[in-house]
């Protein structure tokens, strides 16, 4: 890849007159030795799986194996039809779709990790609701996935994308940054605006711990995906309006690394702290373990 940092990515875009998606497509093709068409079609297949996951989460039973979660996407979707959502229809729809995919994941259904399964709802939530809203074709969306991938590639190689290493900021936080930057480009913003969206978004999730109840990708992961979709749209709007990330986005990525490295182990996916160790969290874990012994 010709870029290691977000700054380098915008420089390549500027010097070659390309979008982030075009740079990613060219570099991925070069790196893998596969033609650009192959890369594009593989990404298109992934987008179809994202659409299927949204549809499944909105219509089928998504009760997880633990029985702790399920059907929240359907609750939000039906609420939207009877009540005017505080968020407005479009952001509420993105939230419902993000919950849907996340619930499919928790019930051992098929999803695309973006960048991880714990954060798999955010990009589909933002992308599929925006596609319906703006009437974009699938080609346009596939380009958006490539932009999101380029942003994630930089974050992953300079910081982390796993909750076990860097907390939830690394998973949900990264996904929000990726979705925000990609949405800016999908809407015709410049690579530079996209980079500002990434920095703005990441600042809002710095320090977010990974504290899943019972160690399951359910509580609070699923609702954080719903919130994440909304945050990504907010960051994209700020950037498109001309708001800048005064601390450069690459430096924000470094802060994520610093904070993640300093995060105690109990807040990095071990279920030994945070929401997992609240009285109710402990009670749930106890009941899950009892259930296991009876089986």
């Amino acid at each position: 890849m010709r870029f290691r940092t977000l700054k380098q990515l915008t420089e390549v875009c500027a010097s070659e007159g390309l979008t982030i998606a075009e740079v990613m497509l060219a570099d991925q093709s070069q790196e893998s030795g596969k033609p650009p068409e192959y890369v594009f079609e593989k990404m298109r297949a992934y987008y179809q799986i994202m659409k299927e996951a949204v549809a499944k989460g909105l219509t089928e039973d998504t009760t997880s194996r633990s029985g702790l979660t399920g059907k929240d996407a359907q609750r939000v979707a039906s609420y939207m039809t009877t009540t005017e959502a505080s968020l407005g229809e479009e952001a509420c729809k993105a939230m419902a779709y993000a919950l849907a995919v996340s619930e499919v994941n928790a019930s051992m259904g098929r999803i695309i990790a973006t960048p991880t399964a714990g954060s798999c709802g955010i990009i589909p939530g933002v992308f599929i609701s925006s596609q319906q809203r703006f009437g974009w074709d699938d080609d346009h969306m596939v380009k958006g996935l490539l932009s999101a991938g380029a942003i994630g590639y930089v974050i992953a190689n300079n910081s982390f994308v796993s909750g076990a290493e860097g907390g939830c900021q690394a998973e949900v936080g990264s996904a929000i940054g990726m979705a925000a930057g990609a949405l800016v480009e999908l809407r015709g913003g410049t690579p530079e605006q996209a980079m500002h969206a990434v920095g703005l978004a990441l600042k809002n999730t710095l320090g977010l711990i990974c504290d899943p109840v019972g160690g399951l990708v359910e509580i609070p992961c699923i609702v954080r995906n719903g919130f994440g979709a909304v945050n990504a749209m907010a960051a994209a709007d700020m950037a498109l309006a001309g708001v800048r990330s005064v601390i450069p986005s690459d430096e924000v990525v470094q802060v994520m690394y610093e904070v993640g490295t300093a995060m105690p182990e109990k807040h990095r996916e071990t279920a030994k702290g945070g929401l997992a160790q609240t009285p109710t969290g402990q009670q749930i874990m106890k009941e899950l373990n009892l259930g296991k012994k009876q089986r």
């Binding site: 019930s107 999803i111 990790a113 960048p115 991880t116 999101a148 991938g149 909750g163």
Partner: peptide, 12 residues
């Protein structure tokens, strides 16, 4: 980063 296609619930 985008991928893999997978059965949930956790990529790692």
């Amino acid at each position: 980063i985008i991928g893999p296609s997978m059965i949930g619930p956790s990529s790692s």
